[in-house]
Write a protein that binds this DNA or RNA. Structure first.
Length: 573
RNA sequence: CGGGGCGUAGCGCAGCCUGGUUAGCGCGCCUGCCUUGGGAGCAGGAGGCCGCAGGUUCGAAUCCUGCCGCCCCGACCA
């Protein structure tokens, strides 16, 4: 491609709307432009990069035995009503009526459509296993789109769905996809980690997320320093607490005035105790109903765990007014004794003795409180966030908390959808069975953004070779000089003949602009044809990633660099 | 939706508090000259519904009200 003919509007200054580095650089480098909140146009370089990622995804999915299809984006409501998700999915599902008044939605995911397709076409175990995928624009009406391509409302996703006859086969498919995902993200040049994850609205019972490690990530990961345990904070558990060996005598319940002491820190300081000796009572609205969660003073609620425990659709923290309306107690003095709403406790609380809680009366706390003697709870479960002080639930070693960007998520769905949508086949005994399903997503456009989050410097993007929009950029520093131009054009044509993705900067610009733009758009190899060619007949080769620079005579450049590129691409994984 | 912030030329911003000629600056864009290894220089030029609507006023980018859009923090998630 010729730069002079390319729509590549680079910017010197960062548009004010961009906050994170990938968004800033995607805008500055002329890859994307926003059309409205969370919806972007891809310019030629943005699309080229997207296509590179897609190609890798296709190759690895196909290698893993999956077949590509393309499913409709507009989906009828009745399919979603049949699966039960029309009501469950919430406002993220963009719904509308067509001219006949039929309710429809834009597909945020495709379990309903794919299951309907397969149940109509596959009626025998002989047709299984079946693994289908597509790469397509998804629409999710996100509450708050942000960070450019990182969380758009419209985005490019690879979604795949597998159908197996047995749990065992489904497990094998899951492992195959797990491996394929490893290959995809490795080939994309990303530093990533697969972690155990919550299954969210997709449902199912087992899943892994593929997380690109980056400080700007929206997720917190809990990773064992020693063993292979790694989980999303939403799912992560700490080593289970153990009851102390020696019996602790239960002290008599007491009430103490704690004027104005509402926060954990204030109460513990006032009473001269530690946060580990206090139990705080947090009120959440669980599908609109208030539920009190008991938690050790130094711990935090993990809302996803609460949601899963109670089988809820929506969980949010109650504000002061909602707390008062539900309990008649101002926040800060809430406790479980005599509380009229549902009460659940974190498992750590169940082992505590003689602790402090709010007395359900302004300016008073209860001392020497004990579960079982002074109050009961409806449920005891792991409901809290893991902290850096916790230990690995598998091996007991220390844990690391780090940030990650979710670029892939694979689920064992089991029979959830095949039962809901009556997806059945006859096994080799002639018995009717439901398919055992799995589903597998990759955020293709997000992967591009994640790669930039991980690979950039002050000058711009540093694309890994496999996903760079161009592999080589040839800078013609003197378009008005016939000798230099002839040499640059020769390189350009020869690279094209070799199948190398090459961009030639043939603009009538000063050298400085060309260097800056080449750095900004992140092309892995930069060739400069200029003064040193006129003088010594050599072309400068510079690697974007480390600035390593060498010079070669014109005739050697294409064979040498083509070989290097091929070796590098083959070396991945 | 709750909390915070912002809307002035393609991009980055000033002007607004304290209303008053023709709304300004840098970059970018166009023309010419000059320059050609890290976003040069000189000269000339084009480009604005000051987010939209209403109000106050002799007069509104500026004050008031409503609306719209965008960004950030939270719930959601590839």
């Amino acid at each position: 491609m010729r730069y002079s003919q390319l729509l590549l509007p680079t910017l010197k200054e960062t548009p004010a709307e961009a906050e994170v580095v990938s968004h800033k650089l995607l805008l500055r480098a002329g890859f994307i432009r926003k059309i409205t909140s969370g919806v972007y146009s891809y310019l030629p370089l943005g699309l080229a990069t997207l296509r590179k990622v897609e190609k890798i995804v296709r190759e690895e999915m196909n290698n893993g035995g999956a077949q590509e299809v393309l499913l409709p984006m507009v989906q009828p409501a009745d399919l979603w009503q049949e699966s039960g998700r029309w009501d469950k999915y919430g406002p993220e599902l963009l719904r509308f009526k067509d001219r006949h008044g039929r309710e429809s939605c834009l597909g945020p995911t495709h379990e309903e459509v794919i299951t309907t397709l397969v149940r109509r076409e596959v009626h025998s175990y002989r047709g299984l296993p079946l693994n289908l995928y597509q790469i397509q624009t998804k629409f999710r009406d996100e509450i708050r789109p942000r960070f450019g391509l990182m969380r758009g409302r419209e985005f490019i996703m690879k979604d795949g769905y597998s159908f197996d006859a047995t749990e065992e086969d489904a497990g094998k498919t899951y492992e195959t996809m797990h491996y394929a995902y490893h290959r995809v993200f490795s080939r994309c040049g990303l530093k990533f980690r697969a972690v155990e994850a919550d299954t969210g609205t997709i449902g199912g019972n087992f899943s892994h997320e593929f997380m690109v490690l980056a400080d700007t990530g929206e997720d917190t990961l809990v990773i064992c320093k020693k063993c292979t345990y790694a989980a999303n904070m939403e799912k992560a558990t700490a080593m289970a607490p153990v009851a102390p060996v020696e019996e602790v005598a239960l002290l008599p319940l007491a009430k103490k005035e704690t004027p104005g002491k509402r926060k954990v820190g204030a109460v513990t300081e006032f009473l001269g105790i530690t946060a580990q000796e206090l139990v705080k009572t947090m009120v959440y609205l669980v599908d609109g109903q208030p539920v009190a969660v008991l938690l050790r003073g130094d711990h935090e609620v993990q809302p996803v765990k609460l949601k899963n425990l109670l089988g809820a659709v929506e969980v949010e923290m109650a504000d002061d007014k909602q707390v008062f309306d539900a309990t008649g107690v101002p926040t800060g003095y809430l406790g479980p004794i005599g509380l009229k709403i549902r009460v659940v406790a974190d498992r750590e609380v169940a082992l505590m003795k003689n602790f402090v809680v709010g007395a359900n009366e302004k300016n008073f706390h209860s001392l020497n409180v004990n579960l079982g003697r002074d109050f009961e709870v409806e449920d005891v479960a792991d409901l809290r966030m893991v902290t850096e002080d916790d230990r690995c639930p598998v091996c007991g070693a220390e844990l690391n908390l780090t940030r990650g960007i979710e670029v892939g998520h694979i689920f064992k769905l089991g029979k959830t959808y095949s039962q809901a949508l009556n997806g059945v086949f006859l096994d080799n005994q002639g018995q009717e069975q439901h398919y055992v399903m799995g589903c597998y997503g990759i955020g293709v456009s997000r992967t591009v953004a994640a790669s930039i989050e991980q690979n950039h410097d002050k000058d711009g993007i540093i694309f890994p070779l496999p996903i760079a929009p161009f592999q080589v950029v040839v800078l013609n520093l003197s378009p008005n000089d016939e000798v230099i131009t002839a040499a640059a054009e020769k390189l350009y044509l020869e690279f094209k003949q070799q199948g190398v993705d090459v961009l030639i900067d043939d603009r009538d610009e000063r050298p400085g602009s060309k260097f800056k733009d080449a750095d900004l758009i992140g092309i892995p190899y930069r060739l400069t044809v200029g003064k040193s060619f006129a003088k010594e007949g050599v072309v400068e080769i510079r690697k974007r990633v480390d600035g390593e620079t060498s010079s070669l005579p014109l005739a050697e450049v294409v064979p040498d660099l083509t070989a290097r590129i091929r070796t590098e691409l083959a070396a991945v994984v």
